[in-house]
């Protein structure tokens, strides 16, 4: 009896694996940012986006109807909040993801995540994008344009970005390096968290014409000693987290002579999503930063 149950169970397993795979008609074959070759049989219509920046891109390309799931962090555009939440890449709600029957997952990262491998094991195609530079953003838009069957829309968004980048670059190029403002970007206050040049915000600062005083820290983001801020005399402090107020920063021990504090050039309450998110709105963030750095 027991043995026959085993046998039935084995048959059941065989049956599962012997299911015919969906016929690939060859809608699109793409090599993603991790160098993986991904073939899509049909144009995807049930997409899960695993990053707020990617969600924004899909909306900007007009593909919102094809999105079935988003992360807990996808808050822009506001309608994106109405989509089904699937947790995030660190705490994914895997059952809900699978129950959405996605035909494509869009992820970010520079290495395959455990989640990506789970999706691969389920034969759900995954495209993984890097999100570290402006070039990454534009390449992601281009790829998504192909996936969502609107390449011309992607091209025009990229052209618009190039145009706005050029405007700011022209303005910045006129300022000699030593005349550019020294900027401290605060990403957390206990401990004090700062960004290096390799981070996206590090690149935003230099594109907007500032000099990141913590640019030389070896990782993208790191806890730093408040001494570093005092030593490097930033003329501007941008606060990219909700914990610190202008008053709290002004009262910090030893910060009274920092030029930014002395001259009241502390900027809390900035739209972090626009400035920190490597998405289609980054040029808006760039304009905000440039406006702060070169305020009259």
């Amino acid at each position: 009896m027991k043995r026959s149950l085993y046998f039935i169970f084995l048959l059941f397993l065989l049956g599962c694996s012997a299911q015919p795979r969906p016929q690939i008609k060859g809608f699109l074959t793409i090599t993603d940012d991790l160098g993986r070759t991904v073939s899509l049989g049909n144009a995807p219509v049930r997409i899960i986006s695993f990053a707020p920046s990617i969600t924004e891109m899909v909306y900007a390309l007009g593909g919102e109807e094809r999105i079935v799931g988003v992360t807990a962090w996808c808050n822009w555009p506001p309608q994106a909040r109405e989509k089904t939440g699937v947790g995030d890449m660190i705490n994914p709600n895997f059952e809900r993801m699978v129950s959405l029957k996605p035909d494509l997952a869009l992820m970010i990262g520079s290495a395959p995540s455990p989640l990506l491998k789970k999706f691969e094991a389920l034969d759900i195609p995954v495209l993984c994008f890097k999100d570290e530079t402006v070039a990454d953003i534009q390449r992601a838009l281009k790829v998504l344009g192909q996936v969502l069957e609107c390449p011309s829309r992607a091209d025009s968004l990229n052209r618009e970005m190039d145009l706005q980048l050029a405007v700011i670059k022209t303005a910045v190029d006129q300022v000699a390096m030593e005349k550019r403002p020294k900027v401290f970007a605060e990403l957390g206050s206990s401990p004090l968290f700062a960004a290096g040049d390799s981070s996206f915000i590090g690149q935003m600062i230099s594109l907007a014409g500032g000099i990141n005083i913590t640019g030389n820290i070896p990782s993208s983001y790191a806890a730093v000693n408040p001494e570093l801020v005092v030593k490097n005399d930033p003329g501007i402090i941008i606060v990219l987290h909700p914990q610190a107020s202008r008053k709290e920063i002004e009262q910090r021990l030893g910060w009274q002579n920092v030029p930014a504090v002395r001259n009241g050039k502390i900027y809390p309450g900035l739209d972090q999503d626009v400035i920190l998110r490597p998405g289609p709105r980054f040029t808006e963030g760039l304009k905000i930063l440039h406006g702060i750095f070169y305020a009259p």
Partner: peptide
Amino acid sequence: GPAGFGLLADHQVMSIRLP
């Protein structure tokens, strides 16, 4: 400290290190 080795560096730096 990262602002450099020395006792008389800067009294602002010292007011961070002392506490």
